[in-house]
């Protein structure tokens, strides 16, 4: 039931127009050991706090956006294209 807005070239759009694409994670190295590969495939950090994450604007621009959000408050700390530095909001 969360509600916040994501900035697109067409202005701030409500999150209900987007589908969640998960947390941004470093790509898996081709020669990563099994344990690392398994973690990469099946485990998410599921952060309670500040998280960099992807959203697909499925009912709109049909593009991906990367934002920084505090998962506890749903406050967007950095909109697409913005830099996030700790403590800024």
């Amino acid at each position: 039931m969360s509600h916040f807005h994501i900035k697109t070239p067409f202005g701030l759009r409500p999150v209900s127009e987007f589908s969640y694409g998960g947390e941004v994670r470093p790509p898996l190295a081709p020669d990563a050991p099994d344990e690392e590969a398994i973690d990469h495939l099946w485990l998410r950090a599921n952060i309670a706090g500040v998280q960099k994450e992807r959203w697909f604007h499925s009912s709109g621009t049909r593009r991906w956006y990367t934002i920084v959000r505090d998962t506890r408050t749903n406050i967007v700390l950095a909109q697409p294209g913005e830099e996030y530095t700790e403590g800024s909001a």
């Binding site: 039931m1 969360s2 509600h3 916040f4 409500p14 408050t73 749903n74």
Partner: peptide, 21 residues
């Protein structure tokens, strides 16, 4: 019936569920 971040207030009538922003 509920207040969420955003803020978003969820309210009900007999016929509708309102998402108020």
């Amino acid at each position: 019936i509920g207040i969420y971040e955003g803020p978003m207030v969820l309210a009900i009538t007999a016929e509708q569920t309102l998402h108020i922003h």
